[in-house]
Design a protein around this nucleic acid. Structure first.
Lengths: 166, 166
DNA sequence: GTTGATTTGTTACAATATAACATCTCAATT
DNA sequence: AATTGAGATGTTATATTGTAACAAATCAAC
C-alpha cells in the first residue's frame, strides 16, 4: 500500500480490494459470464490503489503475468470490466478506476485529486436529483453520464506534507 | 446550415456564430491577447454548427485557408481558445465545442445527443448548487469540472424523422 | 530599426485505441 | 472419443489523438 493511498482515506485497502474482487466474481457467476485470468488480473491491477490507471500502464504491469499481452489484451479486458460495471473510464484522464458500488446502476461523481491523484467515487443523491430535474426540463433522455471534478481532496488540503507523487 | 443544426433548436445560427465571434474579439482586445487569423478561423470552424469537432477534422477543414497547417497548428489554437474560455473540450468525445456563455466563469452541463450529435451547454444552478454542497461536505476544492450527459435531445425525441447524420 | 515576446513553421515522435483475422479452449452435443 | 460452436485470446497492422523541440517569422513597444 502506497503512502498516497493511505493519505486518500485511512482504510484497509486489502479489504477494499478483496471486496471488489469477490463481488465481481459473484456477479460474473450470477450473470453467466467468465471472469478469466486476464480479466481478473486487470481488475486487480486497477484496484491496486485508488488512482486512475492508464491502459498502457496496465499493459506493462500485466506483462510479467501475461507475457503475450498486447494493447488489445488490455482493451478487451477493460471493455468487459466496463460492460459488467466493475470499472469506470475517467474520460478526462483517459484512464480507468475501480467502481466501488457494484450494485448501483450508474456512475456517480468522480472526485479527482490533482495532488495525490486519488479518485473518489462519491454518491450524491442531491446532485443526481437536481440533474434529473434539469434533464426533464430540457426534455433530454440520459443514457450515460460522466461527472468528473478535478481539484484537491480533503486529505491533501489538510496535510501539506508531500504525498508520494511521481 | 445543416438540417441537424436546425433540428437542434430553431435559431438564427448566423446570429449565434456572429455573437460568439464578436464577443471573443472584444474579450481578446480587453485582455490584450491576440485573436490571430488562425485562432479566429478555428473558432469559426468550431462554431460552424453545434456539434463537437475533432482536432484532426479541424485540421482538414482549415487546410484550404492555412495550407501549412499541422497538428500543432490546431492544438495551439485550441489551447488558446480554451484558456480564453471560448471553447470547451468534450472529454468523453475527444472533441471541442463552442462555449455559449463567455461571461460565466466555468463550464456547465453538456448535453450530448447521440442522434443529431448536437452538444448543448446548459446552465443548471440547482445542479451546481447541489454539487457545491456535496463538494463542501467532502472537503474537496474543485478547480475545474466536466459534466457530460449522453443521450437523446428533446428535438430528436419529438421528431423521429432521421436527422442528417454523418 | 532594434529588441523581446509571441506566434507560427516544421519535423519527429509519443500516447491512446481499434480492425481484422487466426488460433485456442472448453463445454455441449453427437 | 470426435465434432462443433461460442467465447476468449493471440497477433499484426494501423488509425487516432496529442506533444516535444527547435527554427523562423511576426509584431508591438521602445
Amino acid at each position: 500500500m502506497s503512502d498516497s493511498t493511505e493519505l486518500f482515506a485511512p482504510h484497509n485497502h486489502s479489504l477494499c480490494i478483496n471486496t471488489a474482487l469477490t463481488t465481481a466474481s459473484q456477479l460474473c457467476a450470477e450473470r453467466g459470464v467468465q471472469l478469466t485470468a486476464i480479466r481478473q488480473q486487470v481488475l486487480e491491477l486497477i484496484w491496486a490503489d485508488h488512482h486512475a490507471v492508464k491502459a498502457y500502464d496496465l499493459l506493462e504491469r500485466i506483462k510479467p503475468l501475461q507475457s503475450a499481452a498486447k494493447p488489445a489484451t488490455i482493451y478487451r479486458a477493460l471493455d468487459f470490466l466496463r460492460e459488467q460495471g466493475f470499472i469506470h473510464r475517467v474520460e478526462s484522464l483517459n484512464a480507468f478506476v475501480g467502481c466501488n458500488d457494484l450494485k448501483s446502476a450508474h456512475e456517480q461523481l468522480l472526485l479527482i485529486c490533482k495532488r495525490c491523484e486519488n479518485v473518489e467515487e462519491r454518491h450524491a443523491d442531491s446532485v443526481m436529483q437536481a440533474l434529473a430535474q434539469e434533464l426533464a426540463l430540457a426534455g433530454f433522455t440520459a443514457h450515460h453520464q460522466a461527472i468528473e471534478i478535478h481539484g484537491i481532496c480533503a486529505t491533501c488540503t489538510q496535510s501539506n506534507n508531500t504525498p508520494s507523487l511521481n
